[in-house]
Structure formats: C-alpha cells, structure tokens
Design a protein around this nucleic acid. Structure first.
Lengths: 344, 344
DNA sequence: AAGGAGCGGGAGAGCGCTTTCCGGTTGTGT
DNA sequence: ACACAACCGGAAAGCGCTCTCCCGCTCCTT
C-alpha cells in the first residue's frame, strides 16, 4: 500500500497482485461477467477494498467504446426567438431533473451542451463523435433545428424532447397538446363561459399550433365555431400584450385559454389593469403547471405537462437505443392533466 | 478511405499513413506541441481533413490523465430545506449558463451531477475520482454541506459558489451581500422611507445573515437603530407570510427590503391583499434581479447579482486550479448593483 | 474406462493516443 | 574548420482496461 501510494491510484494490476490472481479475473469479478469461484471472488473484493481501487474510466471506455454517459443538448437557446432559453427557463431545470433522476441510479451523468449557433452545433456533433457521450438528449427551442438531422447523419443515437418540425426518423417524447387544450376548453365550457378566446404561443412552434387547433376543435364541438386568438411568444410581456389585443377584439370575453403559464401571468396583469376580476369576470386557464402558475394571484388553473416523467422516458429511450443500436425510432406521447386552482 | 470506412472512424495511424509521416508527427501537429515543418503541417492537416479524423477522447485521457471537462455539482437540492433546488430554480439555469459560456470556447462541457443525499455525494466523489471530470464546481443549497470537505479530502480541485458555512481551504466566488443590502437601505432612505422593515432569508444561510446585518448596519448609519425583520425561506409563500407578520408588528411600514425576488413577489401579494399601494404606501426592494422581478406588478426594484459573471469566474478559477494543482485557494467577491424599477 | 463437453482461470493482444528517447540534419560560435 | 547545440521526425513504450484464446481440470456420457 505504501509503495503504490507514491505512484498514483492503484490499477487492476495492483489488485490482481494483491489478490494473487490475474488481471482478467479481477476484471471479471468487477464486471460480473462469467462465473468466478465464489471464494476467489471474495478474495478479489477484499483486495479491491484494501487497495482502494477505482476503475479508470478512460481505459475502460477506450476498449469498450462506451463513454457511459449521455449529452443533454439544449439547442437554439440564445438565438432570436422565444424564451431566454437556458437561463431562467424553469423548463430546463425540470427536464434536467428528470434526466438526472433516471440516469443516476445507473451511475451515469448528463453532459450539458448548448447549441445556440451553427458553430456551436458543429462543435456539439464533433464532441459527441469524439466519444464524449454515447448519445444525445435533444431539447430544441427552435422549430427548424437542423441538429436532429445532423445527429442522425453522424449516426449518433438521439432522442428529442418534442416532435421535430420536419419529420425525421428520430425517437422522441411529446405531450398530447391537443388533448391538453381540450381539457382547458371543456373546463371553461363547464364553468359556463360563453365568450372564449385564446392566447397562443408562437405559431411556428408545433406545440403552439397543436394547442390552438386542439382548443378550437374542442370549442367547436361545444358549439363555438369561432374562437378569437392572439399570438404571443411564450414570454410574460407578450402574454400581456396579446391579452390586450384579445380584449380589444372581444371586450365581453369571459374565458381565456393561454398557451403557457408565463403568458397567462401576463394576461392576468392585463385583465387586472382593465379592471376585470379573475375568475369572476374572466376565467383563465394556463398551460405547463410551471412555478409561474403558483406565483399568480389568483393561482392559475392550468394544464399540467409531466415534464419530469417525459424527461425520464426520453432518457430511457436513449439508453435503449445505445444498448441496441439497430433499434427503430420510437415515440412516446404523454397525456396532460388539468390542475384546477383559483383562476378558472 | 473506402477500406477504413469499414473499420469505424479513422485513427491517428490512418492519418499518419495518409500523410506519409509518423503518428507522433500527426499528434504534434494536432496538439501544436513542438515545432513541425510548416510544409509537413500542411500535409498533415490535409490528411486529417481527407480522412475526417476525429481524435479519440478516451485514448487521450488515458495517457494525459485529463478528462477535459468539469463537473457541475448541485448539492443538497432535494433535501429538506428551502427552494425546490434544481427544478424550477432559475438560479441554476443562470449559473449553468455562465459556466457553459466560459467553458464552451475552450471546448469543454460540464457534467451535471446532483448530490441530494449522502449516498449521492459518495457517488459523486467516486465518479470524480474515476476521472469523469477534472474538478468540480459546487453549488450548495445547504449551509452545512459536507461535500466541500469530501472533495478536498479526495484531493479533487473544486470551487464553490458562495462562501462555505464552515471555513475550509477551498476557492470560492461570492457576492458582497452586505453591500447589496446597503444599496437597498440607501435607496429606501433616499426615497424618504421612515418606517422600514425587512424580510430575511433562512438565517442558517450565510447570505441571508449577511443581507440582514448589512441592511441593519446601513439603516443604523441612517439613524434607524431598530429594523423589524421577519424570516422567510426564499419561497414565494414564505415571503407572503413573512410580510404579513411584518405588517402586524409595524402597520405603518413604508418601506421593506426583501432578501430575494421570489419572496418579494409574495410580499407584494400580501401588501395588495391588505390594501396597500406599492410604491405609493410601501416601497419594496428585492434581491437577485431574477426573472421574478420582471414578473411582478409593479416591476421590482432589486439588487442585482451578476450570477453569470460569477459562474464564469468560478469556472475560470477551477480551470486555473486544474492547470496548476499546487495553487492556493482564492476567493473572488463580486459587487452587486441596484436595478431601479417601479416598486421603489 | 475412454472420449468429450463444460467450466474456471491465465496469458496476452490490443483499444488510440502521448511522449520520451534517439538519430540525423542544419545552424552557430570561436 | 570543428565541436557543439538546436531542431525536427520516427520508433516504440506504455496509459489501464477488456476480452479472445487457450489450457487444464472435473464430470458426465456411452
């Protein structure tokens, strides 16, 4: 122990010598591959403990060609467009939480990468190919993100959060946005709202489109063929502005579905400014069940996305893909649920 | 090209053959170490381009004993205590943003690790020692986090975000919390507030203590020997409750300093509920300049922490430490600034 | 009783890279 | 001119691990 303390951490070789067996045997014990005499196993384990041996990841990766962790790529964050992306986006934290929650019990960790420019995307692909990670979890904030294709072209396993705008043979998880919108519509109608509008997200985002069409379809089924809509871009300010526009078009509005909670918070401000009571005069339903929903007064009734579970599933799919490279792309769609609070 | 396409990605050997030089020379060109004849360099670069060579990270790590990335460890997130930790904490996103911003130009990425239990902490230390990362950036949400010491004991380079509760020979970055509190006090006094109180963060957190004492000291210098305080735990609800308590003690309050924006948002709710106008009746100053500050109506006047810069500096310190192992611990303290909006 | 299947263990060949050591060439000082 | 240094490129030794062979043993089969 004293002699090898000088030469850095112990290696397999050291353990083997200590246990009086070969490197191969120690490796087998560690990796639980093939049968090894229980007695020898015991000796080896003792030797491992005695030497304080810790396997060297790089050496293992070199021969197995497995890095043993995955990349969590946030694409298109800082570029022009909606939310601030990574910073301040509570979404990101929840996704990361779900990913880490699934990975950790398996002794893996995500490598965080941002791809907010073409240059950055190139770098990300390059690093993945260097073996930094075995695959990528991709969260695109942009509709036309080229990264999914680039990853596919490089033959790198990848799973997306949200269906890609341009169809591609890639696995993904997503939410049944239309069903969520329907939940909101049903709730507003059940409350007795007659003049209902909606504040949408940026319409170049699929999720926004789905929420809008889902909402309109559901309202149509309830006998409301026309639903006024104002487009926002998922930020609080844009929600406030959109709400004002909606009120200008339909001053007698008594119910509104807002495509995310942050904009709903802005809508609440607009409603208060114009002297309307929520939920007395106007009922408001948000989307996401983010922390913003609880920060609102009145607290927001909202459509919940099970982000953490979705992130965990996304991770599961990726590990599957890494495990079985030939596997065909899969998609898993989650069902949203309505969380009723004070605003509607 | 055709023959080696079959056997996976090209290696140094392939490039060397293509360029008609030895592996060593190619390696030297790639790493820019020692002088290599410019002409040969050109040939090698061409060969690299032709073969589409990408260096294998594991092999490089194995011999250089450098992983080439760092861990971003969030410690004590899910455990009992204040904020939800990672999920939903906008802080985390901003820190991550600052870290990635500094790392990316250097071709590095952070590995995200959560340490929310003793078991998890053990795992984190283990993985770092396996060579997963060369050092750790540690964000502790808990006062008495054992991780800094464990890392130090394992001889792993580490830099903390925020001064550790128990003094330790570790580098860290922090904010001059007292100065921030003074900024708030000066502003409130300048506005003509006479009856001023404060909502503090959890007092087992150093930052909370500093903000409180800083605020009290500054108010004392302005001739206000006593400042009523109510303790919150950095959540919106706790801020609202604390504000109510403060109002009970001092109904004629005309100014309040709240130790973070989220609680300030709650305080705003309490003030509105009790029929007080902000800033007319009561001026409110928050802390952090987080996204919550902008979500408030009126928008929050707040003390800004340059989180991104702090995170970048933290990263710089860590890379320094990795570069020069013997280096002594350093600390860098950032100065806050006041962002004046509508609430005060 | 003899042949073969099955199993547990060791030897050793790499995985792809960096880096020391060496030899040959060219430049420099006296 | 000659010794010496500086410089550049190649050969080769690993870094620590996995995994394929291979060998010797036991045990079952016929």
């Amino acid at each position: 122990m004293s002699d090898r303390a000088a030469k850095g951490s112990p290696t397999l070789e050291d353990v083997a010598r200590e246990a009086g067996v070969s490197r191969a045997t120690v490796s087998r014990v560690i990796n639980g591959i093939r049968n090894v005499d229980p007695e020898i196993q015991q000796v080896v384990r003792q030797a491992i403990a005695d030497t304080g041996y810790i396997p060297n990841r790089a050496a293992r990766t070199l021969v197995t060609r497995r890095a043993g962790d995955v990349a969590l790529v946030v694409s298109g964050a800082g570029e022009e467009g909606a939310g601030a992306g990574l910073p301040g986006d509570p979404f990101f934290g929840r996704i990361a939480g779900g990913v880490v929650g699934y990975l950790r019990p398996r002794g893996m960790y995500p490598v965080l990468m941002l791809a907010d420019s073409d240059e950055a995307r190139r770098q990300v692909v390059g690093h993945l190919r260097q073996g930094h990670a075995d695959g990528a979890l991709l969260v695109s904030t942009h509709a036309a993100d080229p990264l999914p294709r680039q990853l596919a072209a490089a033959g790198l396993p990848a799973v997306l959060f949200a269906r890609p705008a341009r169809p591609a043979p890639v696995s993904f998880v997503d939410l049944a946005h239309q069903d969520g919108a329907r939940l909101a519509a049903d709730h507003l109608v059940a409350r007795g709202c007659h003049r209902v509008g909606t504040v949408t997200g940026p319409l170049d985002v699929l999720a926004s489109q789905d929420r809008l069409t889902g909402f309109r379809d559901a309202m149509a089924r309830h006998g409301h063929p026309y639903v006024p809509a104002a487009e926002g871009n998922f930020t609080l300010d844009s929600g406030e502005a959109a709400m004002h526009r909606l009120l200008a078009e339909e001053p007698a509005l008594d119910g509104v579905f807002v495509a995310n909670d942050l904009m709903a918070q802005g809508a609440l401000h607009a409603l208060r400014e114009t002297g309307r009571d929520v939920p007395g005069d106007v009922a408001v339903v948000g989307f996401d069940d983010s922390s913003a929903a609880l920060a609102c007064r009145p607290a927001l009734t909202t459509v919940r996305q099970p982000i953490e579970e979705m992130a965990a599933e996304m991770t599961r799919l990726l590990l599957d893909l890494i495990e079985t490279p030939g596997r065909r792309p899969t998609s898993v769609i989650f069902e949203p649920s309505l969380v009723v609070r004070q605003s509607a």
